[in-house]
């Protein structure tokens, strides 16, 4: 009993150390830009850099559009497969996993060949087109996470009965998805959205090969050339991540409880 408790604490402390020591070390290092004293100089430099602001904003906007595109594609697809084509589920799951297997660089070279400025679909001929292509590429990269999150969310509600209840009350497909399905899988969609956000913010390969002014390439450049600023950036990224996660926690408190299964 006593030794059991000892080992439990030992494992816990070991895990905590594994997690916190690098974090503390990074924080400590990020504060040492000014010689001899701790200061927030590195943070000031990073946050004050106009390039940081521009690339970060660019990536945030791209992330928002990626999330919208992902939701528009994934929610109706996952819904329809649960409702009408359950036999296709294994196939669709396999397809959504492909972006994990195929490296981003392969996808992006495919894009460059297919949508180059003298191809029939010259997406890469304009800035807007290239940005759109980036969003599409990111939506593909985020597909495994988004699909799985939404599909798990759909599992918690009785998709078929709720659909039929809405239908018999006169609702069409748009109303059903917007007013019945989406609100009930919102938390799942949000966690998918968060993962998408995390992927998009840090992504380097696609952004750099499509030559977009995104945060990933900026970060890469910073890491290669500076000492203290990358540490400060890591901490900022860490805080953003935790902020998003607590936001999901708070939102899920307001989420509808599933009560459509009698027990």
């Amino acid at each position: 009993m006593k030794s059991g408790r000892f080992w439990a604490w030992f494992v816990f402390l070991l895990g905590a150390a594994y997690f916190f020591i690098p974090l503390i070390a990074t924080i400590e290092f990020s504060l040492r830009m000014r010689r001899g004293v701790y200061s927030f100089d590195a943070y000031k430099v990073v946050l004050g850099d106009s390039q940081f602001q521009a690339t970060f904003m660019f990536s945030v906007i791209v992330a928002v559009f990626t999330i919208l595109l992902g939701v528009l594609i994934v929610v109706p697809t996952a819904y329809w497969i649960r409702l009408r084509l359950p036999q296709l589920r294994p196939i669709v799951e396999f397809v959504t996993l492909l972006p994990l297997v195929i490296p981003a660089i392969v996808i992006v070279f495919g894009y460059i060949r297919m949508y180059g400025s003298n191809s029939p679909l010259p997406f890469l001929g304009s800035n807007l087109g290239a940005n759109a292509l980036l969003v599409i590429g990111y939506a593909a990269l985020a597909l495994p996470y988004m699909y799985r999150a939404v599909d798990t969310g759909l599992r918690t509600i009785d998709v078929r009965t709720l659909t039929e209840a809405a239908q018999i009350l006169g609702a069409g497909w748009g109303t059903i998805i917007a007013r019945v399905i989406l609100p009930n899988v919102l938390i799942a969609v949000l966690s998918g959205a968060f993962l998408t956000f995390a992927i998009v913010i840090g992504e380097f390969t696609m952004a750099s090969l499509l030559n977009r002014p995104a945060f990933g390439p900026y970060l890469q450049n910073l890491v290669a050339n500076r000492a203290y600023e990358p540490a400060a950036l890591s901490i900022i990224a860490f805080i953003i991540t935790w902020g998003c996660m607590s936001l999901i926690q708070i939102l899920s408190r307001f989420a509808p409880k599933s009560a459509n299964r009698p027990n």
């Binding site: 018999i168 009350l169 007013r179 019945v180 009930n184 459509n260």
Partner: peptide, 30 residues
């Protein structure tokens, strides 16, 4: 959705994200 028929299901099938009043109003709003 074109039949103007009302149906009550064994599993209730109330919309969990809507209040009682919003549930009852669903068909009216649609």
């Amino acid at each position: 959705n074109q039949r103007n028929v009302g149906m009550v299901f064994q599993a209730y099938a109330l919309f969990p994200n809507l209040t009682v009043a919003q549930n009852i109003a669903f068909g009216l709003k649609v």
